[in-house]
Structures are given as structure tokens and as C-alpha cells.
């Protein structure tokens, strides 16, 4: 197996073999990242494609500080955000109704959910919720960073996260009911 260092070197020299190897090694995981940010696999694959083109262009500047995977991941998240950026402002102001009055059903727990159901819940989230939930909960961005990245206030980021959580909980419980009725 080609080491990460050699992989980077090969790509920096623009060698097709290493570019292909890099893709094979990271594409499935990175599509997993992009999938969370988009409603459909097709859109996620568009982001993946653009992301890898960026990776090959930018790899010259990769100096091996931090992991290669972390670096590629950031590019993927960034590319996804760029593609989602159209009308992004409105996404954070459209509140989804009927969330507030919902009362949690205490009988539901986390067992027996499939990964693909969970992925689909994320993908079906309203765009604003989806972006902030992903960035904060899964990709580890802080509210301040999210606010800077999306040009919104820290408070918007926080309140959208709370709403997204509530929304997801409701969806999980609905899914649970669907499966057990």
C-alpha cells in the first residue's frame, strides 16, 4: 500500500496513477461527507467531483501539517457549502412550523435505526437546518466558525441548531412509529 506521504508526492507531481489512487482511497468516505449536505446522491456526487478537482489543484500547497484526510474533508465541506450557497440567506430564516408544540414520546430510543434511514433523515432536512446541524454536530465546527462561513450571526447558528435537533427528534420518532405499526 502506498504511504500517505508518497501519495501526496505523486499527486503533487501530477502523476495520474497517484491521482487515481488518492481518489480510490478517499472518494467513498468523502461521498459520505457530501451526501449529508445534499438532498440527493446526484447533487452530492457533483460536489464530490468539484471537490476532487480542487484537491488536485491545491495539493501542491499541502505541506503535511495535519492529516491528509482532514484536509480533503475540509475541501469537501467547503465545496458543498459553495454549491449550496445560492439563496442560503433565506434558508436560515424560514422556520419550519409545528416543531415547537411537539411533545417528545418517551418510549422511543435509539436502537434499531439503520444508517441509511439516518442518512435520509439528514438529507431530507430543510437546507438551513441541514447545513448547520452537519457543520456543528458531525463536522465539528464551532458556532463562531459557522457564523463566519455562512455570514450569519452566532445566535442564528445556535437557534437554528436547536430547531434542527428538535426537528430531527420528531422525524426519528415518526420513523420509529412507521416501522413499528
Amino acid at each position: 500500500m502506498v504511504s500517505e506521504k508518497n501519495l501526496v508526492k505523486g499527486c503533487q507531481k501530477g502523476k495520474a496513477k497517484f491521482q487515481r489512487l488518492l481518489y480510490e482511497r478517499y472518494a467513498p468516505k468523502m461521498l459520505g461527507v457530501c451526501m449529508r449536505y445534499f438532498h440527493s446522491k446526484d447533487q452530492a456526487q457533483d460536489a464530490l467531483q468539484d471537490g476532487f478537482v480542487k484537491v488536485y489543484t491545491k495539493i501542491e500547497n499541502f505541506r503535511g501539517q495535519g492529516s491528509l484526510e482532514g484536509w480533503i474533508r475540509r475541501i469537501m465541506v467547503n465545496t458543498s457549502l459553495n454549491l449550496l450557497r445560492d439563496n442560503l440567506k433565506h434558508a436560515f430564516h424560514a422556520d419550519v412550523d409545528d416543531v415547537k408544540v411537539y411533545i417528545a414520546d418517551p418510549s422511543v430510543d435509539y436502537d434499531h435505526f439503520h444508517v441509511e434511514d439516518i442518512m435520509k433523515l439528514i438529507q431530507d432536512l430543510p437546507k438551513g437546518y441541514r447545513i448547520i446541524f452537519n457543520m456543528y454536530e458531525i463536522d465539528g465546527y464551532a458556532h463562531k466558525e459557522i457564523a463566519e462561513e455562512l455570514q450569519i450571526s452566532v445566535n442564528t447558528s445556535k437557534s437554528q441548531l436547536l430547531k434542527a435537533r428538535r426537528y430531527l427528534r420528531k422525524e426519528l420518532e415518526l420513523l420509529h412509529k412507521e416501522r413499528h405499526s
Binding site: 444508517v115 446541524f133 435537533r165 427528534r169
Partner: peptide
């Protein structure tokens, strides 16, 4: 805990691209 749950489930999901 919902955030943590989703993180555990989805952080390292792999999907095979076309």
C-alpha cells in the same frame, strides 16, 4: 444527545460513487 447519535452514525459512513 441527538447530535452525538447522528455523529456516531454518520461520521465515517462510506458511499461508493458512480
Amino acid at each position: 444527545n441527538i447530535g452525538k447519535f447522528f455523529q456516531e452514525q454518520l461520521k465515517d459512513v462510506e458511499v461508493q460513487p458512480d
